[in-house]
Design a protein around this nucleic acid. Structure first.
Lengths: 201, 201
DNA sequence: TTCTGACTTTTTTAGTTATAAAGTCAAAAT
DNA sequence: ATTTTGACTTTATAACTAAAAAAGTCAGAA
């Protein structure tokens, strides 16, 4: 009927998709399954979303929003650049584990937009500029020295992602074992420690 | 006839394979082509090598040997840890460009031995222990501080590989554009700089 | 001991079909 | 007017298949 209900239905669809996706993975979930969960027809889903991909992207964006909200909260409450970056690693780790079945990497790979895709580029930029802000703030407080915080931030993010990828090995996989998650986290913590020291006076 | 000639023929085969492999890539090269280049029969190749894979591995090992020889020469002549690591980056870069058609990554991927394969593990260890030596030497000279140089070396190598992988993106590709090679090199140089500073007193 | 032509076996590729899932739409329900 | 749906079409995926190409073997020649 009016806008309120329309948005509500959209939300219910996103919720149902998120549940299925995180439990069984996005690619193994059919539109029919989502429709059945909601006791509605598949055609209804297509009234709210142009195609499955759009729904998938919306779900990813929702998860991304929650991720950035936590990230920015953490950055705000951290006293030092060191604390902020360490907090970020923990949050990234938790989200990666929680949402690995959303197949973010798979989407990026299939669409060949790992470094070019618009939404992804924006997310990467948002994360990078958050790190840049943390470094800049560290410089202002006299904690750090950095000529070009933005450039350093790009390097930092790239190195963190790299440590994640260097384990995944054969291909850009979304699935990782508990152990592997932990190894990556430890590497990231260690590198962040050295990195921050390398930016000190 | 006697050993001298046998080894000589083996070398000629390796040479011919190396030429074909680096020019057209290993997987696009047939044993018949190598035999034709040498004006001998394909069966002869199988007298010297049990299968194509063994030949491929031998060619990779030969390239690897040259790589480590240069690497160790560079480490020996460098005055500081900083110089040594920067020198290493340059050498790795040159070899990666020169031998990318040898499809090292492809072999590792297909054989699922990126972190487990024996020969590869040894090569990785050799590179890591070289970095560990460089760091240890830096500590002795009072240039650096590191509690556990071996652990730091693993992290360093992992981060360097990670920067390489984070660009390759979709999958573990051997082929990279000139531009991409240069981007990775710059990142590696920048990270090595911060890393070394992070290990200073 | 080294080499080869003629051979067999294995792998890759391209094409085929069957099936499942994605996506559409005219008409019904609210 | 907006929302929903059953019945439909289209598209993508997976499982076979046949043909071609490359890998790999071997008895016997050099």
């Amino acid at each position: 009927m009016h806008t309120e209900n329309r948005d509500e239905m959209r939300e219910r669809i996103i919720e149902a998709a998120l549940k299925r996706f995180t439990h069984y993975s996005a690619s193994k979930t059919t539109m029919n399954e989502i429709a059945d969960d909601l006791h509605c027809s598949k055609a209804s889903l297509y009234y709210y979303f142009p195609d499955k991909n759009a729904l998938h992207i919306t779900v990813l964006e929702k998860a991304g929003e929650a991720y950035f909200r936590e990230l920015e909260k953490e950055a705000a409450r951290s006293a030092t650049a060191y604390d902020a970056l360490m907090g970020m690693i923990g949050i990234r780790h938790a989200f990666a584990k929680r949402f690995c079945r959303l197949e973010l990497f798979k989407v990026l790979r299939d669409k060949q937009l790992l470094n070019t895709g618009e939404a992804f580029r924006l997310a990467r930029e948002r994360e990078t500029s958050l790190v840049a802000d943390i470094i800049r703030s560290g410089v202002e407080k006299g904690e750090l020295v950095a000529e070009d915080p933005a450039k350093v931030a790009v390097l930092y993010i790239q190195a963190m992602i790299g440590l994640r990828l260097s384990l995944s090995g054969n291909e850009l996989n979304d699935d990782m074992s508990e152990e592997e998650f932990e190894t990556v986290r430890q590497w990231q913590v260690q590198l962040a420690g050295i990195f921050i020291k390398g930016l000190k006076k």
